[in-house]
Design a protein around this nucleic acid. Structure first.
Lengths: 254, 254
DNA sequence: TCTGCTAATTACTCCGACATATTACAGGAT
DNA sequence: ATCCTGTAATATGTCGGAGTAATTAGCAGA
């Protein structure tokens, strides 16, 4: 038997060619396979309608057991990426069946070169949802919410967005706003999108200088929410989303 | 060995007690288990932090193989409902880790008695997103989009919402609007929410009379989109969402 | 041409064994 | 007494193979 594909086992020194699908410890094998296949689908390497090779063949090609391969397929099925039927095989579903808002799917989409149009779509969605979230937060926040936002803002100022601690504070700030909306659906939606988008932005950003000090714009949002001014909060948050879009766009056109 | 739980195998005539977790043909066994466990989690039967009994024990209790049980767990893991670690077991994750916008999770949530607050959250989200979608559709629709909407409206008029064909036409109408936004993220999000919410509304509605003829309100949306009037489209769609909320609320308080 | 049967293929399910990771506990050093 | 370290127990993770069931496609007959 000839090994044609890069192994997923870490105990093999051979790590030639292909995607770095080696699983580090702490990551399950089937998780690594789901990751690999998910990225392959999201990147267009497998197109909707394509049928994957049979279980036995593909599992052998990946040098994993059928169980591990099958569990990976179940994960992809759960996310609406593929569908399996006896005799017909496993085929990639049309894009409109994909759970594009699943955090993991988003991560896979952004792991490679994300489709520009899709990024635009996501920011359009953020531009709709986040100002509305800020509006709700301005109406429903309590003292505790404001305290958390204030602390996060202070931490952002201390560390700046260039450090991991600073970015964590940024996330905390936005999460605090979402939490103040008292709306779980809103929280889940925006948190996953924001995480995926921001993560890649930061990743690709590397040594690029930030276009503009983001702190004052954040403070404007905070002030509006603290003042209980829904309209102002929505407007200020809109500015923030626009800046993020600008930021991501400039990071992508390279 | 004593059988303590209702079987999931259809070849057993005994179908006593418990949820009807029997899998009809066409449904996979692990899918049925995921469905059963998913509903149990969403309904609060298992609370966040609870640890499930071990794989061997639970699989035996359900009278399925460990493989089938494990594949079901992978599905739940993919949806953020549970997390498994060696030695620690499989535990239900906190609610903020759940992929509440996953179509299947939504279906599970609405299969039982959905949490009132959660339903409110979803409608709040719809009230934010759908008018914005109508606004975009008014700006970007082409002749083909309008034709599909018009056909769907005609079908709605013909069949009324009391028939399955009429409800299908309603879905087509809304999907056409979402398609006209040219935004996949928007489409996936709203389609899954709308499907879950409408499905239960219709399900619980049964013999209840519709509060008001919905056709004119739909026509207002169509006219605004056809006229390319974003503001009017958003306003008209807002009315539609409000009506749906009213409808669902009255259907739930029984 | 259409309908019903047959057969082949593929995913699905089961089983039993072993490997691995993580936790918990015990013992010793500080 | 507290902290660290090594060790053992335990539940999940991975494996390989065997047999089942469902769906499709092709074929035969009306």
């Amino acid at each position: 038997m000839v090994k044609e594909n890069p192994s997923l086992h870490s105990d093999e020194t051979d790590n030639s060619g292909g995607a770095k699908a080696v699983r580090g410890p702490g990551r399950r094998l089937h998780g690594a396979i789901a990751h690999k296949l998910g990225m392959a689908i999201l990147s267009g390497q497998y197109q909707p309608g394509d049928v994957l090779s049979g279980e036995v063949a593909f599992a052998e090609e990946l040098e994993v057991s059928r169980s591990a391969y099958r569990e990976a397929i179940q994960v992809l099925t759960a996310k609406g990426l593929v569908e399996s039927r006896p005799k017909a095989g496993t085929r990639v579903l049309p894009r409109n069946r994909w759970n594009l808002l699943d955090p993991e799917v988003l991560a896979w989409a952004f792991a490679g070169e994300p489709d520009i149009q899709f990024v635009r779509d996501l920011f359009e969605l953020r531009a709709i949802v986040e100002p509305a979230a800020a509006r709700l937060a301005a109406q429903r926040r309590d003292k505790e919410d404001l305290r958390i936002m204030k602390d996060a803002l202070a931490a952002m100022r201390r560390h700046t967005l260039a450090t991991e601690a600073g970015r964590a504070a940024d996330r905390d700030f936005h999460n605090a706003i979402l939490h103040a909306t008292r709306n779980d659906a809103l929280l889940v939606l925006t948190a996953s999108i924001g995480a995926a988008v921001n993560w890649t932005t930061q990743y690709k950003q590397r040594a690029r200088a930030l276009p503009r000090n983001p702190i004052p714009d954040h403070v404007r949002v905070y002030d509006a929410i603290a003042a209980g001014d829904p309209a102002a909060a929505a407007e200020a948050m809109g500015v923030l989303v626009d800046l993020a879009l600008e930021d991501t766009a400039s990071a992508m056109e390279r």
